[in-house]
Amino acid sequence: MDFVGLPVPYTMKPRRISEFLIESAIFLAGTISILFVVLIFIFLAKEGFALFRTVSLWDFLAGKDWYPISYPPRFGALPLILGSVWVTLGAILISVPIGVACAVYIAEVAPHWLREILKASVEFLAAIPSIVLGFIGLVTLVPLVQSLFNISTGLTALAGSLMLGFMAMPTIVSIMEDALTAVPRSYREGALALGATHWQAIWRVVMPAASSGVIAAVMLGIGRVIGETMAVMMITGNAARIPTTLLQPVRTMTATIAAEMGEAVQGSPHYASLFAIGIVLFVITFIINLTADFFLHREK
């Protein structure tokens, strides 16, 4: 604060210095995080773009065969990209309707005591390490999918979708629940006072009022799904083929990087191709986060 006209310069001075120090420290902390992002991207780009000296961008993105260690090697990432897309789409189809319904129930319908229990359990769900979920999925979901559809292996895109849908749910529910709770009570009362039913008030007033938060919740859930590695590697079967149904084994981009990075020779095209996959993932997640951000800050 500036006390203009107070004749006490010797007390103001140390305060100005400490203000300056604090401000610079905050500025530094802020810029460092940006710097790290930029450095990570530069590193990723440097390592990944080396691939395109041997393979064209088109052959990489649209190539149907991923045989990185055969001779000659083939670096078609399409099966991996589609593997991620299929698993993610499946997970969205499962988690979005259930997550949205769950958030609406917690925020709008559940009695007070139940609301607190449900919120705590959803947050607890988010705290379970993904490897543990993957392990549980491996011993429960995979056999279930196998016997349910009578197929030779349960390690399929569907099992991955179910698992990831389950993992995305806490993100979707908790962000959306916050968005719904933030809708002023007066909107609900206004709708009810006009003779709306509880459901009409939720659907026609509360949901539109919370729409940006709802969309952001879904986008962040998708971001969580597409970036997940361990659980999905354990239960999707890891076959780098272009999937035609959800009942086939698939291999996602993340699982490919995790599985092959250890054995790729540093500096080789194989090594570079894994970084190139990393760039693709980075771009996808970046777009998703950007979209979420756009919706979060759209109004007002």
């Binding site: 002023p184 007066s186 909107y187 009362e189 206004g190 709708a191 009810l192 006072a193 006009l194 003779g195 709306a196 039913t197 007033v205 539109p208 009022a209 109004e299």
Partner: peptide
């Protein structure tokens, strides 16, 4: 019938509460 009641008996609140529409 609360719906019919509230149609017939409308309410204006302390703070204006137009919907965000």
């Amino acid at each position: 019938d609360l719906i019919r009641l509230r149609k017939k008996v409308g309410m204006v609140f302390q703070r204006p509460n137009p919907f965000p529409l």
